[in-house]
Amino acid sequence: MTAASPNGVAIDALPLIQTSGLTKRYGKNVLALDTLDLLIGGGVTGLVGANGAGKSTLIKILLGLLAPTSGEASILGFDVRTQGTKLRQFVGYMPEHDCLPPDVTATDFVAHMAQISGIPRAAARERTAEVLRHVGLFEERYRPMGGYSTGMKQRVKLAQALVHDPRLLMLDEPTNGLDPAGRDDMLDLIRRVGADFQIAILMSSHLLGEIERVCDYLVVIDGGRLVRSDTLSSFTGEMQVLTVEVESRQDELVARLQAEGLQVAIEGRLILIHLDGSAPYDLVRDAVVGLDAGLLRLEQRRHRLEDLFRSDEAEEAESG
């Protein structure tokens, strides 16, 4: 994408979102963000963390809805504190909660919101019709929104965030309250916005499965601190495992594999061998044959992101 940013700099050359030492304290005891340093570029970025990790706080600070206690944050090179009204012309926000007046039609509401983002009236009307079609809202758009289903409301919420053609879209738990089918539709839509519309997205979720489906990059925060920020593939690449199931002598096999220097875990009847880029198939075969353990299963499996976090939690539970 060659679009110039509002600052006149080529958009790819800029970090989309940059924070340094960003801290948010609620009262005296609650530290929502703790000296967070972030650098987020284009594409679809997932913001992951448990409830209360600071995801919403970060998004709200970036939007200027909350003032940080200390530290800096900028979007597209604009300071979020001092240049908010300018930069927010180029930002779309879909909040987690309900935010639609029930007595207004989707068409009127979305067109109004476009104007509040600085889009002239005629263009606002035109873009409203288009964006509502893109999110899949047709005849219903002329009816008051009070009668909409949750799925329809979520679509309007996405539409109002998109209508002014933002450079960056921030979605706070966009699938909240949706049934599985609605969830799939919403994720497909988000995927399309990122890929086809070429709009950068920062999407928070506590459901890793969702993040995995739509995101290119992943930012993991916990307790207001950055745990890790990387491409999705680098996260999943580390999670290749080899699953082994044997008829008997499982413990002995595990001991022997560990002696060979492999990272091994037990999950019920399964032995999980962490693949660190290596391919220890021969080792496993020889060990099983040597013990005459009776091989039932030998398969490579890609761990899902959830497993990564689950094992962390399990470890914490054990040590705690």
């Binding site: 939007l63 200027g64 809805l65 908010g84 009204t85 300018k86 927010r88 012309q89 930002v91 926000y93 909040p95 909660h97 309900d98 935010c99 639609l100 007046p101 029930p102 919101m113 509040i116 983002s117 600085g118 109002q160």
Partner: peptide, 14 residues
């Protein structure tokens, strides 16, 4: 009441 304020405050006005 409708919690529309965040939508306004995250747009081009203060």
């Amino acid at each position: 009441r409708n919690r529309t304020l965040p939508l306004y405050f995250s747009r081009a006005l203060s």
